[in-house]
């Protein structure tokens, strides 16, 4: 069974900078890390592979990352954590992509790999959209299960997962191929092994550009993005509200007066 994982390299600090021209994140020259949610996706992929291999089935994990050349570091770290193959989708044409163009591009990469399962983190800690996983599924016409907290069972044709939903859990069986986005409850990620780190150092990282994906340039990057970021700003500090003290009856009357004034009641 072929398993793929999509990871994103995100800033390791909270002091992010934005490009004033495009209003997108500046990633160059910033300490970075694998998006923490993606570590759970990678761990689940590696565990799934290990379970399959223990049952005598062939399985491998391919990690895909879209980003600038420095995202190689994230892919090397993924090798240290158990990935077999790594593919970097990197091209100037991919720059400035929103979630539509990102999931489209990742989808093109995944189509070449033809995985049975694609694991993603539930969202990235910088963008927080949670759209790329479902976006990929839509672009490549895979089934999807989001916010997965547990894989209940897996066979060659279908997978049963437990999803974290607002009021509890939902268990569903879905046909493969599928895109799964995972929540933190799903596992406890391992730390890198020594062999893994040594392999990571030697790992050959395949890079695919726009030409390798045979992608129409107008669907990529900033030009392929239906959403454009108009403005990026830190929300202003909230001013403290009005505070009144006194007897309950008095306060109730005052509050009622205020509500009336605001035409709420």
């Amino acid at each position: 069974m072929k398993i793929a994982v999509c990871i994103k390299q995100v800033p390791a600090t909270t002091e992010v900078k934005f490009d004033p021209e495009t209003n997108t994140l500046v990633r160059e020259g910033v300490d970075s890390q694998i998006n923490p949610f993606d570590l759970y996706a990678l761990e689940e992929a590696v565990r799934t592979k290990e379970r399959l291999q223990a049952d005598g089935e062939e399985s491998s994990v391919t990690v895909v990352c879209m980003g600038p050349p420095q995202a190689q570091d994230a892919l090397r770290e993924a090798v240290a954590l158990g990935a077999d193959e790594t593919i970097l989708l990197s091209d100037r044409a991919f720059g400035g992509a929103d979630t539509w163009a990102t999931s489209y591009t990742l989808g093109l990469g995944l189509k070449k790999i033809e995985p049975d399962i694609v694991f993603c983190g539930m969202q990235a800690i910088d963008g927080d959209t949670g759209q790329v996983g479902p976006g990929i599924a839509t672009h490549i016409d895979y089934a999807q299960a989001t916010y997965v907290a547990k894989i209940e069972s897996l066979d060659k044709k279908k997978i049963t997962v437990k999803r974290l939903v607002e009021n509890g859990y939902e268990v569903c069986s879905v046909k493969l191929p599928i895109v799964i986005t995972v929540v933190k409850e799903i596992n406890e990620p391992r730390t890198p092994s020594l062999r893994g780190k040594m392999n990571a150092k030697k790992a050959q990282i395949t890079t695919w550009g726009a030409a390798d994906l045979e992608a129409p340039v107008e669907k990529l990057g900033l030009s392929g993005s239906p959403t454009q970021v108009a403005k990026v700003f830190s929300p202003p500090h909230r001013e403290g509200g009005e505070k009144s003290e006194g007897e309950p009856d008095e306060l109730a009357e005052k509050l009622f007066g205020l509500l009336k004034e605001l035409e709420i009641v």
Binding site: T191, P192, L194, K197, M198, K201
Partner: peptide
């Protein structure tokens, strides 16, 4: 050596995250 530095990093991550 590079390998010894890797050993230290591997051990440190276990120490900080797991211990």
């Amino acid at each position: 050596t590079e390998e010894q530095q890797m050993m230290r990093e591997v051990a440190r991550e276990i120490a900080e995250k797991k211990i």
